[in-house]
Design a protein around this nucleic acid. Structure first.
Length: 406
DNA sequence: ACTGTTTCGCCAACGCACCC
DNA sequence: GGGTGCGTTGGCGAAACAGT
């Protein structure tokens, strides 16, 4: 048998496929996934995420011996209703998190909506009841607007109060812990890992952004006109060279001069140049290259295996040395820590209103509601700023000179 | 609330470069 | 030429963040 690409259809790299236990593909689900990638032009990472939910559903179908087309008269016997019950039970038993529970149900509903729309499935009875709810939101000028969202009787709500999210989810580390983490990283981890943690903690960049930073990005850094100690790095698809960001936002992130200098020194160090020599041409300009000449985060695999493994090792080292802060430490917490620290400083320097703007800029949030979560979080937490903190020094040094900018 | 995007978890087996 | 450091690759999946 010879595989040929059909005329005119694009290749979707990494498209997941779902198979039943007997080896047959679930054609409908696979078709949906493919159309999501092609017609709907969703990011491949999104497709993978969705497929994980559909896959979980398919496993349940087989385990519970339920047909996915089963919509009998009695509501409680219908496949979707049964699955909903199962999900809620799993959540209660602490087998899956509330956010995952909602996600699983939501994606399955999306899939069934499409099934109904394309008439691949037309059950005699309605699969669920549709309803609309209104959500109020205010924009940056304080004007309120309302928009409606289509929901179904099957969806599983995951209600969380603004301001609490940071606490039970990802939380910032204390400055004491941060110092400890950096200390351990400096002495016991590869230099690159220490540097990446430094950049994470003091610029708030995501790993994805960090891993795609190019030397040119650093060389093109612009000094902030009002504050000589601060530089701005252009990131996003619109920057030159492009640096990847979540949701493809383009903007500038701040970096202190001392950190920028340190990075520049590293860029031309023998260690890094050796790695550069091994890298493929398209990766040569990256600031951070693994010893084998690869980028630390591989966008195509939508994972950052090198970083994951390094962080796992770092945690192990932490356990060995009895550093409790490292036990559950994740790289993304560097961003979270940066955000709350910056918010604290900004609130102190100019009040909450200014703070929102500053933090939003620094973290490249397109939407204020995301930033507000951080501000609310620090408002609920007692403020304890130690003046000995490097971060405070670095930023307060400049804030006192220019309240206009910070 | 819904939808779309990212990051993170663990483990096992392997593999390359470097050091002794 | 065997150990070791530092990743790589692949498989399983979970849970969070961000924007509307």
């Amino acid at each position: 048998m010879i595989w040929r690409q059909p005329e005119g259809s694009p290749i979707v790299d990494g498209l997941p496929q779902i198979f039943w236990a007997d080896g047959l593909p679930w054609r409908e689900a696979n078709l949906w996934l493919m159309l999501q990638a092609t017609e709907a032009r969703k990011d491949i990472a999104t497709i993978k995420s969705k497929s994980a939910s559909i896959y979980a559903y398919s496993k349940w179908l087989e385990e519970a011996e339920v047909d996915w087309r089963d919509f009998p008269t009695r509501e409680s016997d219908r496949c979707l209703v049964k699955y909903r019950g199962y999900l809620i039970k799993s959540r209660k038993a602490n087998l899956i998190a509330p956010s995952t529970t909602s996600q699983r149900m939501r994606v399955v509903i999306q899939f069934y909506r499409w099934l109904r729309h394309t008439s691949l499935l037309s059950p005699e009875w309605p699969m669920w009841r549709e309803s609309f709810i209104s959500i109020k939101r205010s924009n940056e000028f304080g004007l309120e607007r309302t928009f409606t969202v289509n929901t179904t009787s099957l969806s599983i709500p995951n209600k969380s109060t603004v301001g609490e999210k940071l606490e039970d989810g990802l939380f910032p580390v204390s400055e004491h812990d941060r110092a400890k983490i950096l200390e351990i990283a400096q002495s016991l981890a590869p230099r690159e890992i220490h540097l990446m943690l430094m950049v994470g903690f003091f610029t708030g960049m995501r790993i994805q952004t960090l891993a795609s930073l190019a030397i040119q990005t650093l060389e093109n850094a612009v000094e902030d006109p009002a504050t000589p100690q601060l530089y701005r790095l252009a990131v996003g698809p619109g920057a030159s060279p492009p640096v990847s960001t979540k949701n493809d936002v383009t903007g500038h992130v701040w970096i202190t001069k001392s950190l920028l200098d340190e990075l520049m020194v590293y860029c031309y160090s023998a260690e890094r140049l050796l790695r550069q020599a091994k890298a493929k041409p398209e990766n040569r300009d990256l600031v951070f290259i693994t010893r084998r000449g690869n980028p630390y985060a591989d966008r195509n695999k939508d994972r950052s295996p090198a970083i994951n493994v390094s962080m796992s090792t770092l945690r192990k080292i932490g356990r060995k040395h009895g550093i409790s802060a490292l036990k559950v430490f994740k790289f993304h917490q560097t961003r979270c820590t940066f955000a709350t620290e910056l918010a604290r400083l900004a609130v102190k320097a100019g009040g909450a209103i200014h703070a929102i703007g500053i933090v939003k800029d620094a973290l490249l949030h397109r939407d204020e509601s995301t930033t507000i979560k951080y501000i609310k979080f620090i408002e609920r937490t007692p403020i304890k700023i130690s003046m000995a903190n490097d971060f405070t020094k670095a930023f307060l040094g400049v804030t006192s000179e220019s309240h206009k900018v910070l």
